[in-house]
């Protein structure tokens, strides 16, 4: 195990994230096709809308397994730091925007965007890792 990308945990993580992401995109596409814009929340529409959520839960599971299975302590430290930076990034933006929503008439930020914001935070975390250590981690 001399290269981070050769770590089996990384390969398993990629092997889980790719099908989950394809399932997510497919489920979102299917929901968009089946549910018309502005549809009322009933059993059918809620059930269809929740299907992509299963893939999102799968992402969280895959990330947790990745950290558990990553046996290289230095790489694990880099990944955990990335996750913490991403969490801080998403919380900072959403909490500050929430206050703006509370006290001003700025448009509401849909909760849907919390996850994409967290993923942008991952990129920020990767950049921080790279600047501080010269290694960005492997995921």
């Amino acid at each position: 195990m001399t290269n981070a990308s050769r770590n089996p945990a990384y390969r398993r993580y990629t092997g889980r994230m790719i099908p989950l992401s394809l399932a997510y995109v497919g489920a979102v596409g299917l929901a968009s096709w089946l549910i018309p814009d502005g549809a009322a929340a009933n059993v059918a529409t809620v059930a269809i809308a929740l299907v992509p959520g299963l893939a999102a839960l799968g992402w969280i599971w895959a990330m947790a397994r990745f950290l558990v299975e990553l046996d290289d302590e230095y790489l694990r430290m880099l990944e955990i730091r990335k996750f913490l930076i991403a969490t801080g990034f998403a919380l900072a933006i959403t909490s500050v925007w929430g206050l703006l929503e509370l006290f001003t008439n700025v448009p509401a930020l849909p909760i849907f965007f919390v996850w994409p914001l967290w993923c942008v935070g991952l990129a920020v975390g990767q950049l921080v890792n790279w600047r501080q250590t010269g290694a960005a981690g492997c995921a």
Binding site: M1, T2, A4, N7, Y74, T133, G134, A135
Partner: peptide, 16 residues
């Protein structure tokens, strides 16, 4: 050691 080359480099350079 069963670790990554990046880990060895980080330890050697005192970053970790």
């Amino acid at each position: 050691l069963g670790i990554s080359r990046q880990s060895v480099n980080a330890i050697e350079t005192g970053k970790y």
